[in-house]
Design a protein around this nucleic acid. Sequence first.
RNA 1: GGUCGGAUGGCCGAGAGGCGAGGCUCAGGACUGCAAAUCCUGCCACACGGGUUCAAAUCCCGUUCCGACCUCCA
Length: 463
Amino acid sequence: MTSELHLYDTAARAVDRFVPITPGKVGIYLCGATVQAPPHIGHIRSGVNFDILRRWLTATGYEVTFIRNVTDIDDKILHKAVHEKTPWWAVAMKYERAFTSAYSSLNVLPPTYEPRATGHITQMVSLMETLIANGSAYAPGNGDVYLEVRKLKRYLTLSNQKLDDLQPAEDADMTYKKDPRDFALWKAAKPGDPSWPTPWGAGRPGWHLECSAMAFAYLGESFDIHGGGLDLIFPHHENEIAQSEAAGYGFAKRWMHNAWVTTSGEKMSKSLGNSLQIHEILKKGVRGIELRWYLGSAHYRSMLEFSFESLEESSVNFRRIEAFLKRAAEATGKHAELKFSQAFADAMNDDLAVPAALASISEAVRLGNTAITEGDSKAVATYASEVRGALSILGCDPSDEAFASAGSASNEALDGLIQLALDQRNAARARKDFAAADAIRDQILHLGILIEDTPQGTRWSIQ
RNA sequence: GGUCGGAUGGCCGAGAGGCGAGGCUCAGGACUGCAAAUCCUGCCACACGGGUUCAAAUCCCGUUCCGACCUCCA
């Protein structure tokens, strides 16, 4: 009897059983990047966390439609374009590529579809027409369009705030707004800004509208899960809910938010100057698979306090698991199949309890290592399958071609050379000339190759 | 002012009334010519003060400290 998937819902502030709208299918909308800077590890943690959710849903038989948007127009992109003397669309494309590359380095699967805001102006205009027609929004005549928050049946249900408790924005322009908390669906074009024609004048989208319009376009009026970082709860997600519900849509049935990556206890962000970009870490020689293992290892709702020390510690742990899979393959003569244990499934079904899932992997590795020592190849195959299957769901299967290393031809030559040295060394060992044998081992170790003697013979690996 | 998190062993990091998650480090042992790897054993922690209970890291009350959001944010 398998356990059933339970997930946290930010709106309910509780974990409860996941029941899809349509049996067997799941629609997920994840707020992706506003492409105005290269991704830091916090952005990619979000990608990894939701990638794990998606992989788990897929592994347990759901057909997942995963939409992750790109917001390719906003104030910062326009500012940056002016600053860099580059067209705004070139700025957006540059950083979109940086995000794509970072996701790919960490084996985050491409979404089913990745809609860009600027490609969905028609859908946004249509949504605004609906909102104006039913009295939820107004166009004061200057080209802006605002949502009238006082008219909403409910508002701020995710962040559990009261409208009157909000600190009104100091810079709220009351020339056209009916209430300082009304937010812009659409912004009138300023000279030099890109713009699109609408019934209310030329302009560009406000920040929140694109997600409501695109979620509707690809997932319909109502869908299963909406995800994003904790800091999007207010205002972004509140305003998405406001727009979509005012338009009469059921919108997201469940809200999931990942916590931050912190340094010195503080949230990583560009404005604090403490952000760490993915490519900076990879440049230090950290493997993508190890960085992913680290970012995915904490529970998605817990803060992850980043340090290179704990990253290295996590990598040591991963290499032990990886080494087990390698030795298991040698012992059984084949790659392990992809399976997972009940303990792993129970952990994942409990709101993606990855730390508990990791404990189940460690247990399987320990038992599998013992089975290798005992020569029980059937047991080795069983544990290796469980480990590899679990790793695969976490996106960290070492045999995944996403992490494949190149150069198998040169490896053959290397293999021959090392075999030559090993033959020499084993000859020395046979005549009990251990000084010579150890000298060979030490010299090879200096070249970065580790030699290990096992009851099954001598094996080598690149450090 | 409003809303919301957090504090766990040398370190990372789970758990949420009873049975010591797991990992890393370190120490000892087994195995080994020696290493390495592996396995075994050990290192009995929950910010502080009260309370509830047969039993509290977990529930309640209070305190301290850290952090996040309140219209830029993953």
